[in-house]
Design a protein around this nucleic acid. Structure first.
Lengths: 245, 245
DNA sequence: CGCGAGCTTGATGCCGATCAATGCATGTGG
DNA sequence: CCACATGCATTGATCGGCATCAAGCTCGCG
C-alpha cells in the first residue's frame, strides 16, 4: 500500500482566506480582520484532487488539515479484513484531517468524489497561530467538538434507526448543508454512489435503492439516478422523528 | 426536565494533577513539571456523583470539562422521540464534556454508573492556559482527535459488524482500557446493564444476553451476571477481525 | 421473605441482506 | 455511428439475523 504516490499538484498562488467566499462557513468563522490576515499568511497553498484520487490515506503521516474549497469528499475507515465504512461526506468549507492529530498519522482515507480543490493548512503553524489568537483557537476547538457531536448523531442513526429513517435523515442533513452554501433546499445531485450512501448509513446498496424507490412511490421524492428532488420535506422530517409511531 | 438540580457537592481541597496517579492516562500526559504545576492551579475542585446521577445533561450550559478520577460513566444522546443511544463509557483518566465546546451547551447526558469522582476543569481557564503552554495545547488537541477516531471505530462497528463481532470488540476494548489502568486483562465486572451495552452496540438487550451465553458455550468467556472472565482472548480477537470468514 | 430490577431463554416474525437478473447511462474502439 | 463493455442502479425472490413478545429465573435489598 501507499506504493506509488501520484504527483501532488499544489498551486501556490494567493488564495486569501480574508477574501474567500467560504469564510463564513470555514475555519475563519468569527475571526477579526487582523486574525484573518494572519490566516492568509499560513494558508498559502491549494491542492487539486481529481475525482477518485485520495487526498490522504490511513497511515499517511499527518502534516496538515485541509479545507474543502470546491468539490466533494468522502472519508472511510477500514478494518483489517477489508470491510470499510464511510465516516462522512465533506463539502465546501468543511475540514478534513482532524483524525490525524491524535496519532500523527491519518486514520481514514479521504477520497474526492468529484474534481476538487482544498486549502492546505499546515498543522504546526495552525497550532502556533492559535496560541496567539484566541478567536482562532476557539474556532478550532469548536470545529473539533462539533465533529464529535456529529459523530454521536451518526451513532444514534446507526444504532437505533431503521432504513427509511436513516435515508431520510441523510437527505435532510445533506440538503441543509447545501442550502447553507446557497444551493437549492429541494433539488440536489448526489455525488456518491448507492453503495457509498449505504456504507455511511450501515445499509446495503440494494436497500438504499429500494428505499429511494419507496420514497418516490410515497410522493416524498423524485428520483432519477443521482438527481433528487425533495417533494415533501415535512414528510421526510416526520420519518426521522419517528412520528410515524 | 432539568427540574430540581441535586445539590452539587464539590470538594475544594488540594488534588494536584502533578501527584495524581492518573497523570499518565489523563490530560497531563507528556507535560513538563512546570506545566503540571500550572494545571494544578486550575484544576482546583473535584465533584462527587453518586450512582445513577448525572454529571451534566444535554442542554446544560457548558462550563467545564471533567476528568474521571474514580468511578464509571456513560454518555447518551437522545432523539426527540425518546430513543436514545449510549455514545460511550468513560473510566478513570478519561475526559467528559468535549461535546459541549461546539455550542456552549452539552449535547449528551453523562450518567454515573457507580459512585464516582471527577476533577473539574474550567474550560475558559484551560483554553487560556493552553495558549501559554504548547504541550498542554497539543495534548488537548490529541485528546479531541482521538475521540473523533474512537467515534469512527464505533461507526464501523455499528455499520458493518454483526452482533457477535460487536460484543467481542466491546469486551476487548474494555479490558484493554482496564489493563492500562492496572486491572486484570482477563477478569472484569461490568458496570453497565445488558440494555446499556445493547444501546451502545446497536443491539437489544436480549441479543446481548444471548451472545454472552453463546460465547460461554463456545468457551470464549465465563459469564456470571456482570462478572466476566475472558477464557480465550485470541478467539474473541478473531471474531472481531472477521477471520471466521 | 418477598419484591423488583435485571438477566436468561424460548418461540415467532420481520427487516434488511443476499443472490440473481435486468435496465440504463457513459465511454471506447472498430 | 454503431457495437459492445463497463459501472451503477433497479427490481425480484429468498434467506437469515436480530427484534419482538413472552415466560421464568437470579440476586440484592428493604
Amino acid at each position: 500500500m501507499n506504493s506509488t504516490m501520484p504527483p501532488i499538484r499544489t498551486e501556490p498562488f494567493k488564495v486569501a482566506c480574508s477574501s474567500c467566499n467560504l469564510r463564513e462557513l470555514c475555519l475563519p468563522v468569527g475571526l477579526s480582520r487582523n486574525d484573518l490576515e494572519q490566516l492568509d499568511t499560513m494558508v498559502a497553498t491549494r491542492r487539486s484532487v481529481v475525482r477518485g484520487d485520495t487526498l490522504f490515506r490511513a497511515g499517511d503521516a499527518f502534516q496538515s488539515l485541509y479545507a474543502v474549497r470546491t468539490g466533494f469528499f468522502k472519508t472511510c475507515v477500514s478494518a483489517e479484513d477489508g470491510r470499510d465504512q464511510v465516516t462522512g461526506f465533506q463539502m465546501a468549507g468543511e475540514l478534513l484531517g482532524l483524525d490525524g492529530i491524535g496519532s500523527d498519522r491519518h486514520t481514514v482515507d479521504a477520497v474526492a468524489l468529484e474534481d476538487s480543490q482544498v486549502c492546505v493548512i499546515p498543522y504546526a503553524q495552525l497550532e502556533e497561530l492559535s496560541r496567539e489568537f484566541s478567536d482562532l483557537q476557539r474556532q478550532l476547538h469548536k470545529i473539533m467538538s462539533r465533529e464529535i457531536v456529529r459523530d454521536h448523531g451518526v451513532m444514534l442513526l446507526l444504532g437505533s434507526m431503521r432504513a427509511e429513517e436513516r435515508l431520510a435523515a441523510f437527505l435532510l442533513n445533506l440538503t441543509q448543508r447545501l442550502q447553507a452554501r446557497g444551493f437549492s433546499a429541494s433539488s440536489l445531485i448526489l455525488r456518491m454512489t448507492r453503495e457509498e450512501i449505504g456504507s455511511y448509513l450501515g445499509l446495503k446498496l440494494e436497500t438504499v435503492s429500494r428505499t429511494f424507490s419507496k420514497f418516490q412511490e410515497e410522493g416524498l421524492l423524485e428520483v432519477k439516478q443521482r438527481q433528487i428532488r425533495i417533494v415533501d420535506q415535512d414528510g421526510l422530517q416526520k420519518l426521522v422523528n419517528g412520528a410515524a409511531c
